[in-house]
Design a protein around this nucleic acid. Structure first.
Lengths: 228, 228
DNA sequence: TCAAAAGTGTTATTACTACACCCATGG
DNA sequence: CCATGGGTGTAGTAATAACACTTTTGA
């Protein structure tokens, strides 16, 4: 953590969501140093002088959590004068998504404690990170309806039911199974695989995968994704 | 333009839109100093050490253009390492909207030349300001369909036809007069005024005004604004 | 054969689209 | 009385919402 002591500092912070078994999680780190020592916070850190913002997020995430992102986008820049008790720090917040497979977190370089928290069982957060998280959640919910970003929260191959449950979970409302399937398949961006899911209980499910290419084509032709 | 010479600088830039007579305009300033001396650029400047980001935009806009904003929202933070030839400068871009009444620009403190350009007759822009403008335009077009922000581009009292023309202009597609009116009025966020417009030609038009309060209520109740 | 989850069609309702004539005013 | 833009309703069409039974598997 070598930080030059100047007038104004720039940091990046990431709200990284993961989904598993009908629950949405956020990655948090336990701060080793003041301020907010011992409290939970979003992963993030200072932007290096010759480093792009996205690079900085990826680096910090890698250092602090070892997380492998499937999706990353800028959220908002938080610049309130007093948001950091030490000095003026402006922070560019990002939203990231990971697959269930990438849940396994190895704390590394900075060696903070890292953990996934269900979004309805959050601890108190350092700085204005609660606002960041709230905004990220709003963005995720919003985008889910007009872009198929939810697929970044599922494994490469997934049963259709998982997709519906993901939507139901994150948007916190039930969907009609038949209507949801009909609607989603109508976009023609999913590929039906010949395989069936290894099963726990009940009838084995057909597996699907996201056809990114077909989605891009459809988008360019103005076919609009829209799930309500 | 007193700028401390540090590792990383933070600026704000504003894409300010105005609308009049079926044309969308952007406010640009002509740069007096290098880099890009003599070229057109978005209004903006350095964030002071103890100044909030929004305050900085407002201040810079006031200093450079005298513009009175009706609407301001953060757009995106541009942080490419080489975006400023002098040194590392990260810029938080904003989108602003003004009313036709507020078009009158008085160049002031910084005394740059300021002008409004129709969005389809733009000069070359300094830095990455063309990207900022493009993104702002995309955002404006996007938001127009799901938030009534277009009303910030019209006068307090406006004839309905103006609103339709504004939508047609910015979204660059025709609307059916009857359907548009029916849809827009169905949201119940416009107040019909007893007055009629002072006329140039044709039948005088009923004037309307935006009922911000009713809009907020409707929004909280989940009534969703949606113009396609 | 039971439990558990996957898969599948039809009908009623609602929202959207297309479309043309009369009205009020100024010149 | 003409030109100009304002104001209005209806019918066909498309999208959405509601709804229940059968299938496949493991235990």
């Amino acid at each position: 953590m070598n930080v030059p002591d100047n007038a104004l500092k720039l940091t990046v912070d990431a709200v990284v969501f993961g989904y598993r078994d009908g629950q949405l999680f956020v990655a948090l780190i336990n701060r080793k140093y003041p301020p907010y020592e011992g409290q939970w916070a979003l992963p993030g850190g200072f932007v290096l002088p010759d480093e792009n913002l996205e690079t900085a997020v990826q680096r910090e995430l890698h250092e602090e959590t070892g997380i492998q992102l499937r999706f990353l986008e800028q959220l908002f820049t938080f610049g309130e004068v007093q948001r950091d008790p030490r000095q003026r720090v402006v922070s560019v917040a990002y939203m990231g998504l990971v697959r269930p497979t990438d849940f396994d977190i190895k704390a590394s370089t900075d060696a903070q404690e890292v953990d996934w928290f269900p979004i309805d069982e959050l601890p108190a957060l350092a700085f204005d990170h609660a606002s960041m998280l709230e905004m990220a959640l709003k963005r995720l919910r919003g985008k889910l309806t007009y872009e198929p970003i939810g697929l970044n929260l599922l494994d490469e191959k997934f049963p259709f039911g998982d997709l519906e449950r993901l939507y139901a979970t994150i948007l916190n409302k039930p969907f009609d199974r038949r209507n949801f399937r009909k609607k989603f398949l109508s976009f023609g961006i999913l590929t039906e695989l010949p395989e069936k899911s290894a099963l726990e209980k009940g009838r084995p499910a057909t597996l699907y995968s996201f056809d990114r290419h077909r989605y891009e084509l459809a988008r360019q032709e103005g076919i609009l994704f829209d799930i309500k």
